[in-house]
Amino acid sequence: MRENLDSVSSQSMAFTDCMSSTDLLAENKGMKRKNWRNKLGFLLKTKSSHTKMHPTKNRSYRPTADDVNLWAQSLDKLLSHKYGKVAFRIFSKSEFCEENIEFWTACEDFRTLTSHKDLVSKANSIYEEFIKSEAPKEINLDYHTKDAIAQSLHKPTATSFLAAQRKIYSLMENNSYPRFIHSDLYKELYTRALSSGQTRP
Rank of each mutant, 00 (worst) to 15 (best):
N174K: 14
T112E: 15
S92L: 03
S12A: 07
L113R: 11
R33G: 00
M1P: 10
S196N: 08
S160M: 11
D147C: 07
K132F: 00
V8F: 04
R37G: 04
P156L: 09
H81L: 04
V68L: 12
A26Y: 04
K167L: 12
R37S: 04
S7T: 10
K45Y: 00
L153T: 08
F96V: 06
A158N: 15
E102P: 01
E173H: 13
L185M: 15
E129P: 00
T157C: 12
M19V: 10
G84L: 06
S195D: 07
F15C: 05
I168L: 14
L79G: 01
A193Y: 07
S121T: 11
F88N: 03
L43Q: 06
E173F: 11
S170Y: 07
K29I: 05
S121I: 04
R2M: 11
A65F: 09
L194R: 10
L24N: 05
I131K: 02
K34L: 10
V120D: 04
A193V: 07
S176L: 15
D23W: 01
A26R: 11
I149G: 02
F88L: 15
L78E: 10
E95C: 11
Q73G: 03
G41E: 03
R89L: 13
K137I: 00
A148Q: 13
R166D: 10
L25T: 03
S115G: 06
F96R: 12
R166V: 05
E3I: 14
A87D: 05
M1H: 12
Q198V: 00
T46M: 00
K187Q: 14
L119D: 10
L153N: 07
N35Q: 12
N35A: 14
Y169A: 04
C97R: 03
E134C: 01
K29S: 12
R192H: 02
T51N: 01
S7F: 13
H54Y: 08
M31I: 13
M31R: 12
N140A: 05
L43H: 06
E138H: 03
M31S: 08
E138G: 01
L79K: 04
C18E: 05
F103C: 11
S10V: 14
Q11W: 09
Y177M: 05
H81P: 02
A87I: 07
K39C: 01
T16R: 10
N38R: 09
S125D: 13
S80D: 15
L44A: 01
